[in-house]
């Protein structure tokens, strides 16, 4: 771990080489908004473009996404220049015209001084509810859960996460990690009694032998037992009663 010093908004900051600008900045109290960033996900897709900052290195100044820009010696970062604000505002306005019904995006828009988008709003076949197509759900499913039940489908405006053949996935374990990770609460996961509905499939839940609460899908237990060798009886009780 090579320690280096960089500048953020004029202040000297110590950091570890190749850490992301976003993490270094946040650790040191500089606020940078971001949607598709998740600390557990190694693939920093940098797709939402909300975390843009201005960096100067080797005499070159440009806007970069802070979530995946590695800090190197001599880097100067500015998180709040006119250009950063202006371009971020444009990005957020586009997101608002894409997902006008998302409370997360609405709030972000207000914070960036946007009342209403000046552009047309996605509707009809292009209506994506709250999804900003950031692909975080598919990365969690692949990198953290390890099942790759969903992927990003199509391209351009039509890009959206989905299951193969748009049919219920045979490998999905119903863990809901995708829904938890989603920055805009766009993935529908409904727990009703002993059944969880997600991605068009129903999963039977395991009930805690102490409190009687259904808390984990059976398919997820099967997956954990299979991949970690953990004893099945471990899942008789929910985390609160173990």
């Amino acid at each position: 771990m090579e320690k280096i010093t960089i500048k953020i908004n004029g202040k000297d900051i110590e950091a570890v080489k190749d850490q992301s600008v976003l993490e270094v900045a946040r650790e040191n109290g500089f606020a940078i908004p971001a949607l598709c960033f998740h600390p557990e996900i190694e693939t920093r897709a940098g797709s939402c473009r909300v975390c843009l900052v201005e960096v100067s290195q080797n005499g070159r100044t440009r806007l970069v996404t802070s979530c995946n820009y590695p800090v190197r010696k001599g880097l100067e970062v500015r998180t709040d220049t006119d250009l950063v604000r202006r371009i971020r505002k444009g990005v957020v306005e586009l997101l608002l015209s894409r997902t006008p019904d998302s409370p997360v995006i609405q709030k972000l828009a207000r914070e960036n001084g946007i009342e209403k988008s000046r552009f047309f709003v996605d509707e009809g076949e292009h209506y994506r509810n709250r999804c900003i197509a950031c692909s975080l759900c598919t990365q969690v499913c692949e990198e953290v859960v390890g099942v790759s039940a969903i992927s990003m489908l199509d391209r351009g405006r039509d890009k959206a996460p989905g299951t193969p053949y748009l049919k219920p996935s045979q490998v999905c374990i119903g863990c809901g990690a995708c829904a938890y990770a989603c920055p805009t609460d766009a993935i529908s996961m409904i727990d009703e009694g002993e059944v969880r509905k997600i991605w068009g499939r129903e999963f039977k839940m395991v009930t805690c032998s102490v409190c009687g609460k259904p808390y984990i899908p059976e398919a997820q237990v099967d997956w954990i037992v299979k991949t970690t060798g953990k004893d099945r009886s471990f899942f008789d009780k929910c985390p609160d009663h173990r």
Binding site: A45, G46, S47, C48, R49, V50, G90, V91, L94, L95, S97, R98, F119, F120, D122, I132, A133, S135, M152, D154, R155, G156, R157, D158, K159
Partner: peptide, 14 residues
């Protein structure tokens, strides 16, 4: 557009 990033995916149709 591949649809990965917001400016291109949502900006070009506008």
């Amino acid at each position: 557009s591949c649809g990965k990033c917001t400016p291109c995916r949502d900006g070009l149709p506008r």
